[in-house]
Simulated assay, not measured.
Amino acid sequence: MSDTGHRGRMLLTGGRGMVGCNIREHARAAEWDILAPTSAELDLTDAAATAAYIAHEAPDIIVHAAGRVGGIQANIANPVAFLDVNTAIGRNVIMGARAAGVPRLINLASTCIYPRTAPSPLAEEMVLTGPLEPTNEGYALAKIMALRLCQYIRTETPDLQYKTLIPCNLYGRHDTFDAAASHMLPAVIAKIHEARTAGRDTVEIWGDGTARREFMYAGDLAEAVLRAAGDVDALPDLMNVGVGTDHSINAYYAAAAAVIGWNGQFTHDLSKPVGMKQKLCDTSRQTAWGWTPQTDLQAGMAATYQFYLERLSS
């Protein structure tokens, strides 16, 4: 007899996004009966519809991975949507869960919730200790609201295990490679692949390339989420999920070039915005929880590039 779904029913929001797709295709997903409605099936910005859906389906756990996401350009261009849509979605899912008495919820935040001047490594207790990075402040405010809402609910109703994971920057299979909407690493992969295909010998980097970022393979985050879902009680209230080491933007470009097999030169546009100088997670809580990501940058980049090539050819 198959043991599929033996842990119970999971409602996964954002099941078609990068994180959601990686969760659904992970081997441990077979332990759950996963509901992953599309936005056409369930509009999470509609509070009444969201509450009714959660009450009707009565999941044992909700993993909240939905949201309007994008890179630095998208955040600068659409601050209203990044604040409004993400605030509405977070509130509707979390309050819908509470109204239906869903016992466990894992809320996914982002390291952009940390103050822009916070010293690295970024520790969980630094949330709300200073001004946010202006380029993604709307998104960050929405994510802070959701994590605080989970904390307040636990304070009022300790039986409800509503916890928040704060992943570092992600990349991987099912990412978006469209330059206007994508995050940094998929954009880098697409840019270098296009340069190689077109026979160009230079690729431009925004800024001087010395800003440092921590990127984790999305398949590793999926593993952490599914492990957490199996024992939410043991999870800290708030926990960074990261690699614990970072690289310069220049180093990521070089790693992508190596995987793609492009041998050109990089130029730097010093007039472009670069965001925070460094954003590295403190992973002490994660280490105490007993987990570390297993995919190194080379392997993760190779898998992501392979996915990109499959996308191009389909």
Rank of each mutant, 00 (worst) to 15 (best):
V85Q: 10
S271C: 03
N86A: 09
A181R: 14
T245I: 13
A234W: 07
A254V: 03
N250D: 13
D269P: 14
M95S: 11
D237N: 09
R154I: 01
A100S: 08
A302P: 04
D46Q: 10
T292L: 15
M184H: 07
L132C: 04
G199A: 03
G67E: 06
R9N: 00
M18S: 06
G20P: 03
A251Y: 02
L11M: 09
A229V: 05
T129Y: 04
T50Q: 05
T210E: 09
A190F: 02
G264S: 14
I144Q: 01
I34L: 12
G8H: 00
L132P: 03
L170S: 02
R200I: 03
A109T: 06
M239V: 07
T157C: 10
N240H: 13
L44F: 08
R24F: 00
A66T: 03
T129F: 08
Y162G: 05
E25N: 15
T164I: 02
D269M: 13
Q265W: 10
T157W: 13
Y162A: 07
S120Y: 01
R7A: 07
V127Q: 02
A97K: 00
V241R: 01
D220M: 06
L149E: 12
T304A: 11
A109D: 08
T111R: 01
A55S: 09
T245V: 15
I144G: 03
A299K: 13
A228M: 07
R68T: 10
E31I: 02
A257F: 04
Y139E: 07
T245S: 15
V232I: 11
Q306K: 15
A48K: 14
P186G: 04
R212G: 05
A288R: 12
I189Y: 00
D208C: 08
A251I: 00
D201V: 08
M216I: 05
A303V: 02
R68F: 12
W262A: 08
T38E: 10
T283A: 10
I153T: 07
F82M: 03
G264C: 12
A180K: 12
F82V: 05
D237W: 11
A258P: 02
E124L: 13
L170Q: 08
N136H: 11
I54T: 01
H26S: 11
I89Y: 01
A118F: 05
T50F: 02
K143F: 07
S313A: 14
A140M: 01
E194H: 15
S39Y: 11
A187M: 10
R227T: 12
Y217N: 06
C281W: 00
